[in-house]
Design a protein around this nucleic acid. Structure first.
Lengths: 205, 205, 205, 205
DNA sequence: TATGAATGAGGATTCATTCAT
DNA sequence: GATGAATGAATCCTCATTCAT
């Protein structure tokens, strides 16, 4: 169903630029190269379009995460092979936009927050817990992460938010930030690099 | 000026519940106990109302933060006296709602993101950098935080997002989470406590 | 395009009855037999509707006037074949309403006055001057009209205004008035007729 | 009642600039140097303000006209002493604005047209008829004016309209135009003068 | 009397959704 | 299936009018 995918992609772009309420179905249709009515052949309403975006863009990531955990590696491997790529992915692709979009609109669409929790957050945290219980009992960082596995992924919301809102005022290399964070978590010494701080134009305006 | 504050408070409540676009001026007015037209005696339009919220709710916090840094204590004191209370505050008061609201709508109102950066984020990061440069050169965590001071406050967006979106599905004690995080950053041993994980109703529905 | 014409016609009726500002888009739509939104498929806003009226109702008349002059007849023929019918037309059709409407609203819509001048008034006066310069140099009336060609059409605003505002108080046969005026201009003796003065109801109320 | 007069004057200015519907009571108040509420101490509503303008600005003129006629002079004297000055007056003072305003809004306020007819138009035409019946029976122009006394004042609406709408596109010396017209009516030879036609900027834009 | 803050009816405009073609 | 003209509910904002001070 190429037609359907084109509509979802167009909707994501429009929602990302304007937000859910301010995005116009007509603009989505034009961007997808179809007529307004065609959208309604595939989706009941605007909200259904939103849910389709979440499903289409997030499900693959979560499934990848779950299978990585099921494959059973070390925490270190999990971080390097899964979490770090995920941060880069969110920073560079439209998936990051989906996350921000969700933050924006979840309040208005409670079902959406629930879907996201059931589909993404809950399983992801379960994966993390499983991993930690298997490997790292007793250490300080493991204790912290067992109680609050959310902390393992704390750089993710920070990265998504910074990229979306503040990047144009001050650059932040979110992948290196995540790298530094995970190195610290694992007690490893990071490679020396130049500071990532570069103040941008808007700051001086 | 009481009237004006009542309107801003009502607007915050409505925006928090419905989002910026979906909030109706009439509902804001009713909640504030005034007539529709009265809002327009105080604010040019809906957007001006939004800016007033950001200014009114965020400025005091930032100034407090800056003065704490200016007063010049240790990183540990700063964390305990400023950051930890801030997390609790954001979790329990409407200020957390303001932050989420801002995440939601900043994309649509670029000026708002800029105001927020100039007023809140930029100064806060500067404060953190100042603190770190004065005190903690050379240590691993300091190196990380000097390059990425955002990591010092990484629990904040996580806390705000969790409280706003997922708390009803799974409880997270964000203050204790922050405590655990800061203990780990400072290399201190946390007090033992029961797990904070309590699955809530929505999970079983 | 029928739809569009129906809207313009309905708008003219409503504007004529209520004036520009007081006419409601909803009433125009109802009168045109369409929904409110349909108007906006054809016209950007209320003002565009107004401009469409002027163009649609006035352009044909002006073009007829110009072609009459280009055809090149005598002043007498021009008066009898063009101006006299014009007066009757303005008195009896909606074109008169357009003129009054324009008088009403031109102050508020400077572009409208300009359009009307460029499209109607300027060309009409040019036509009159051309006619006079070709035919009637040297005579008293021609001297007057060459300097002030507006005087040739002085009965027109009078006719339009009377018909629109005072006809219900006192009848005025504007066509015969124009006839008498033009006869006088041309130095011809008018046919005797009964007085056109008939006091109407409102006078006695 | 200086206060009252200031309000009427301010209202005239605002109505003249914006039209009746678009003029804001607040602007009228500000221009008059009073508070909004003060207007309502003197006038029941916006419409009453309009009527006050007509009465205040037009009544003196009409009474002057009537008394001139009662004094009983010749048609020539009437023209020179009353009509010509009236044209100049309407062209240069706010009284011309009142006339245009009336043309604009009379359709919406039928009572206003009636008041104007009863107060101004009817008496003026009666005066003209009285004058003509006493003096000039039998001549061609008199026959025309007896049947259509409106023609005696035909330059007036033309002058008012031109001044208000088209003057900025093409200059017209309305007083000289009236002079030429009345000379022609009276069969007198006008003094030679330069053409009054001067095309203005807007024409070339 | 005079004020101007407050009111709320009113209306232009937008846009999700429908449906005849 | 696909279209896009048509619909009309929804909502922001204005401003004439009121009234407590």
């Amino acid at each position: 169903m190429l037609r359907r995918n084109a509509i979802v992609a167009a909707a994501l772009d429009e929602f990302a630029e304007k937000g859910f309420a301010a995005a116009r179905m007509e603009d989505i249709a034009r961007r997808a190269g179809v007529a307004k009515g065609t959208i309604y052949l595939n989706f009941n309403d605007k909200e259904a379009l939103f849910e389709a975006i979440v499903n289409q863009e997030m499900r693959p990531n979560v499934e990848a995460l779950a299978s990585k955990v099921a494959a059973g590696g070390s925490l270190r491997d999990f971080i390097h092979e899964t979490l770090l790529p995920l941060v880069g992915d969110l920073a560079r692709t439209r998936r990051g936009v989906v996350v921000r979009l969700l933050l924006s609109e979840a309040g208005r669409f409670p079902k959406l927050a629930e879907v996201y929790y059931q589909l993404v957050i809950g399983p992801a945290l379960d994966s993390i817990r499983t991993l930690l219980q298997a490997k790292d009992r007793g250490e300080l960082k493991a204790m912290m992460l067992l109680q609050f596995p959310q902390l393992l992924v704390a750089p993710i919301p920070m990265a998504v938010i910074w990229t979306g809102l503040f990047e144009r005022f001050e650059h932040l290399d979110v992948e290196r930030m995540a790298h530094a964070y995970f190195d610290f978590l694992l007690g490893e010494k990071p490679a020396r690099r130049a500071s990532s701080r570069k103040v941008r134009k808007a700051r001086d305006e």
